[in-house]
C-alpha cells in the first residue's frame, strides 16, 4: 500500500472506536480471572488485550499526526461508503439471512441475478444467463462432486437427487 499522505475521511473516528473496543475487551479479559495467576485462563487474553490497547493508542496518536484530508459526511459517503457498496452489502446480508430458510438454490440464484444486474449492468437476459450458468457450475462442483451439504430450503433437492440417482444409477455403476 502506498504511504498515506493524509487522513482518510472517518479515520480518526474509526481508530478511536478500535481503541474503545480494545479497552472494552481488556476489561472483559480482566473479568475472566483477574490477576490471579500467570497461567490462569485469563492470562493470555489479558496480555493480548493489553497489547491491543497500547497499539490502539499508538494508532490514534499516529492518525492525529497526519495532515487532515477531505472530511465530513459527504466525503465519508463518497470515499468509504458509496451507494454501490451499501447496496451490494445489503444484498449479501439478505442472502445470508434467507439462506437457511429458503434454501441454497433459490437464494443463490436471486442473489447472483440481483448482484450481476447491479454490478454488471448488461441487462436482464444476460444477467439471468450468467447467474444460471455460474450457479449450475458451483452446484455441480460442490454439491455433486465434493458432496458439500448445502441448505435445502423449500426445494426437496435430496429427494430429486435420489430419484435421479435411482434412475441413472444402474447405468453409471453407482450403487
Amino acid at each position: 500500500m502506498d504511504p498515506q499522505p493524509t487522513r482518510r475521511p472517518g479515520e480518526t473516528v474509526f481508530t478511536v472506536m478500535m481503541l474503545l473496543l480494545s479497552i472494552f475487551l481488556l476489561w472483559n479479559a480482566y473479568k475472566i480471572s483477574g490477576f490471579s495467576s500467570k497461567s490462569s485462563p485469563g492470562a493470555f487474553p489479558l496480555a493480548a488485550t493489553l497489547v491491543m490497547v497500547v497499539a490502539g493508542l499508538v494508532a490514534v496518536f499516529n492518525t492525529l499526526r497526519l495532515p487532515e484530508g477531505p472530511k465530513g459526511f459527504s466525503a465519508f459517503r463518497s470515499q468509504v461508503a458509496p451507494n454501490l457498496v451499501l447496496a451490494f452489502a445489503g444484498l449479501i446480508l439478505f442472502y445470508g439471512l434467507a439462506l437457511e430458510s429458503v434454501g441454497f438454490i433459490l437464494t443463490s440464484l436471486a442473489f447472483l441475478f440481483a448482484g450481476m444486474l447491479l454490478l454488471h449492468r448488461q441487462g436482464i437476459g444476460r444477467s439471468l444467463m450468467y447467474s444460471v450458468l455460474s450457479l449450475a457450475l458451483v452446484y455441480v462442483t460442490f454439491r455433486l462432486v465434493f458432496k458439500v451439504v448445502l441448505p435445502e430450503g423449500i426445494i426437496p433437492e435430496r429427494r430429486i437427487l435420489a430419484e435421479i440417482g435411482a434412475v441413472l444409477g444402474p447405468y453409471l455403476g453407482v450403487r
Binding site: 451490494f88 449479501i92 442472502y95 445470508g96 439462506l99 437457511e100 441454497f104 443463490s108 442473489f111 447472483l112 448482484g115 450481476m116 454490478l119 454488471h120 449492468r121 448488461q122 450468467y130 447467474s131 455460474s134 450457479l135 458451483v138 460442490f142 458439500v148 451439504v149 448445502l150 441448505p151
Partner: peptide
Amino acid sequence: KGVLLPLIVLLSVVGAYSINNSA
C-alpha cells in the same frame, strides 16, 4: 468484475456454510 464479484461472494458463502453446515 460485475460477474466475478457476486460469484466470489457465492463461493465465500458455500465455503463458510460447509465448515459446520451452519448458517
